[in-house]
Amino acid sequence: MSETSSPLPGVEISVRSGRGFLNLRLNPRRGQALEAAERILGQPVPPAANTFTAGEHEIYWLGPDEWLIATAAERVLSLGSELAEGLAGFHSAVNDVSGGHVELLVSGVDARTVLTKGCTLDLHPREFAPGQCAQTGLGRAAVLLAAGDPSIYTIVVRRSVSDYLCSWLANAARPHGARFPAR
């Protein structure tokens, strides 16, 4: 996830294109269902609230029986059917929600300062360490916020409010010399 060792100065905001999303629901107390899902995904499904695992995909905890799988857009269809097949015998659900979500990346030394302007959570790495995520409010939007690294944050937001959120971020980041690289 982190491509640089020393964080960029200021703040960079970009839309991560070519991403796909699956919503996974199953009862984690059903060991076999969880094992089947993890075998297909090739990485652990985070059991702890408000954490995520990163591997081929990012798997975010959304609720005690719900996760969001973020992966490459071209992988979504095959992964979705593999999961649906593998979990067929269990009380579970796999849904492609790619069309409804946008992934944003906010990075740089001032990233945390910018996000703090519109978020009620304590984003200090002491409280919101790499590997943690949270569904919370940013500006007036409901977002999924994840800390990849103390200076890199991933935001997954509903497509319908992504325009608003980008404008909000651009405005909040203006005093910090915001840059908007294409990705």
């Binding site: 609230a49 408000n50 009620t120 959570l121 949270a134 569904q135 919370t136």
Partner: peptide, 11 residues
């Protein structure tokens, strides 16, 4: 009970 203390605006 799952996410810990959060601001009232989230509820």
């Amino acid at each position: 009970p799952w996410c810990g203390p959060r601001a009232e605006t989230e509820f």
